[in-house]
């Protein structure tokens, strides 16, 4: 044990020589939703729009067309390996899909410079909390490593309907914290100048959310 560690632990024990015995925390806050799925979805959309995200509701049949539209003039976009091919539009002369392998120490991963040069990223997501308007990315195969949803300026994120819950505790039950987790509530923003909210600082300036029914 380092000297510093031993000393700090010793100080803590001596500071606690009165042996405080606090009670077990009381957790009376809500842990399970009492709302219908429709209400929860409406709440999520309301929150996301409030954060200035663009929200679309699509089906398996219409999603590829929607993604094509949102990509717009974006010529190069990146996707993680596990993303469903059926969701994505066909490549065209003007539009190229790049698949990132998910491990920047192995081949098949885009370098940071390459990522900086792509226009957009398309991923799925693990769970979304309606009450706070928060989408959880948890390093799954269809979400990819953290850099791909950070460096490109435009994130198109698919939220399957059955991943929408109302509360934070409900969201947490679906997340494995052993891998990196990124919670996203709207596009990057700042209020540092005269408290005026500006969307888009260092993270993606545009967040498109596609609710997949």
């Amino acid at each position: 044990m380092s000297d510093a560690k031993a000393e700090i632990l010793g100080r803590i024990r001596s500071s606690l020589s009165d042996h405080p015995q606090p009670a077990e925390p009381i957790r009376n806050y809500r842990k399970v939703s009492d709302k219908s799925q429709a209400e929860v979805l409406e709440m999520l959309i309301d929150r996301l729009v409030d954060y200035k995200a663009n929200v679309f509701e699509e089906t398996e049949e219409t999603i590829a067309q929607r993604i094509a539209e949102q990509l717009g003039k974006s010529s190069r976009y990146v996707v993680p390996t596990g993303l469903k091919n059926e969701w994505l539009p066909e490549d065209t002369a003007a539009r190229t899909r790049m698949v990132d392998s998910g491990n920047d120490q192995k081949s098949g991963a885009l370098s940071l410079r390459e990522l900086d040069a792509v226009d957009a990223v398309v991923t799925s997501s693990t769970v979304s909390c309606a009450e706070t308007g928060t989408i959880f990315l948890t390093s799954q195969e269809d979400e990819g490593r953290r850099a791909i949803t950070l460096v490109p300026d435009h994130h198109i994120c698919v939220v399957p309907l059955d991943t929408v819950v109302e509360l934070i505790p409900e969201s947490m039950r679906r997340v494995d914290f052993n891998k990196p987790v990124t919670m996203i509530s709207g596009p990057s923003a700042t209020s540092d100048i005269e408290l005026i909210r500006v969307e888009g600082v260092h993270g993606p300036r545009t967040l498109d959310v596609i609710i997949l029914k």
């Binding site: 929150r47 954060y51 993270g203």
Partner: peptide, 8 residues
């Protein structure tokens, strides 16, 4: 309701 980004 939530800050834009939370990382773990």
């Amino acid at each position: 309701r939530m800050n834009p980004y939370t990382s773990t």
